[in-house]
């Protein structure tokens, strides 16, 4: 339809323009087919091309969905197996999302690749809200960003607060050694009182729960334990091994961070595949709907042109007879 309009426009401006540029425009849209002036049949070429491209897009999205589904199966098992890992730490050190400390580090976990629905924007949104919540005159809040997508979103308005970015996490299948090296890297390069890890916890293929895990530095753990509250019970524990209590707490905090991060990246990778699967599913469905509409238009146009031709022939014949 649009093409017919373009052709009409082209004809109207034909005296003003040289014919070549129009042909160039047309050839980029339609295969080179020189329609003579005064051609009466309606061209269905544009619709046919459009249908072809929609069909190809549908093929691609379907394939992506299949790939995501098979990747999801593998990673879901690993994510579910790693769920036991953080629970002992939460049982021992409690869950302290509202702890008030000076140096907050927000670790945003995201994916490297797009086309996976809204999971990355969710983590970024939550990270930004958390940043606002934890910023104040005597406070320092920094971001550590895992994955390209959150980096691209955060660089725009909080570039100066990004301390560290890490990407290409999922080049190799995620394993604990790799994540603990990464955790070590973060711990070495960033000073923190509390690490807040934001990720999407996998719930089902269509639902992900944005989650925040908090890891406190050993000094804060000690401070909180002395102050009582949620960590008050920690003082009743006997500590075996190590030279001092501080040393054990240090080891404990580092180990906790690597374990929590390991689970977080796995859960997020799992959510990513799930989200990609449902996103690709809906875009294949959309492409299907679009194809149906285009087919309808195509057939209607075809029929209309046949009808016109018939009328021409019949009226011509009757004119001869009469």
């Amino acid at each position: 339809m649009a093409m017919a309009a373009l052709r009409r426009e082209g004809r109207r401006f034909a005296p003003l323009l040289s014919p070549r540029p129009i042909a160039a425009v047309r050839s980029s849209l339609v295969s080179e087919e020189d329609i003579p002036f005064g051609a009466r049949s309606i061209s269905t070429q544009v619709v046919r091309n459009r249908m072809k491209s929609v069909k190809n897009i549908q093929k691609i999205t379907k394939a992506m969905k299949m790939v995501a589904a098979s990747k999801l199966r593998a990673i879901q098992i690993r994510a579910e197996n790693s769920r036991g890992l953080w629970q002992p730490f939460t049982a021992l050190l409690g869950d302290t999302p509202s702890v008030d400390v000076k140096k907050n580090v927000i670790v945003t976990v995201s994916s490297d690749k797009g086309l996976c629905g809204g999971i990355n924007s969710t983590s970024v949104k939550i990270s930004k809200a958390l940043y606002k919540l934890n910023s104040g005159p005597d406070k320092e809040t920094k971001y550590v960003v895992l994955g390209e997508k959150a980096k691209a979103q955060l660089v725009r308005d909080s570039k100066k607060n990004i301390e560290l970015t890490i990407s290409e996490l999922q080049k190799n299948p995620l394993n604990y050694t790799q994540v603990s090296v990464l955790a070590d890297d973060i711990l070495k390069n960033v000073e923190f009182d509390a690490l807040r890890i934001i990720f999407n916890k996998f719930h089902s293929v269509v639902s992900f729960l944005p989650t925040m895990s908090t890891v406190l530095s050993p000094e804060i753990v000690e401070r909180e334990a002395e102050a009582g509250g949620k960590l008050g019970e920690l003082d009743s524990y006997e500590i075996e091994g190590g030279e001092t209590k501080a040393e054990i707490l240090q080891n404990l905090a580092e180990f906790q961070f690597s374990c929590v991060l390991f689970n977080a990246v796995l859960e997020n990778a799992c959510s990513e595949q799930g989200a990609r699967m449902s996103a690709m599913d809906s875009s294949s469905r959309n492409a299907g709907d679009m194809l149906d509409r285009l087919t309808l238009t195509y057939n209607r146009t075809r029929q209309a042109s046949i009808t016109t031709e018939l009328i021409e022939i019949i009226s011509g014949a009757s004119a001869l007879e009469g």
Binding site: Q87, D95, I126, L209, P210, T211, M212
Partner: peptide, 15 residues
């Protein structure tokens, strides 16, 4: 905006 979940909401309480 809904606040994020925290780990304790995914954990069965200890006896």
């Amino acid at each position: 905006m809904e606040p994020p979940k925290t780990p304790s909401s995914f954990m069965s309480p200890r006896p």
